[in-house]
Amino acid sequence: MRPRPRVTSVRFGFNPNSSSLGIDVTFLMLGLAGVSIISATVSALLPRLRPPPAPRPETPTQDASKS
């Protein structure tokens, strides 16, 4: 049987601060119950998504008329 996909950890939010990493301490209030609920929810939902193709660097277009 295939192992079930599992989200092992989560970090919410961006960190616009350019000197150090931001850690959202308000999640401490959720406790282990919050961990269980969020872990189960995102472990079930996330694997249903697929990322769009990654953008590639722009390459200069060849203009045949100039060659």
Partner: peptide, 14 residues
């Protein structure tokens, strides 16, 4: 805005 860390089975599933 979030980062999700997945185990090997999660990586395969994605």
């Amino acid at each position: 805005a979030a980062l999700f860390y997945l185990d090997e089975a999660g990586a395969k599933a994605m």
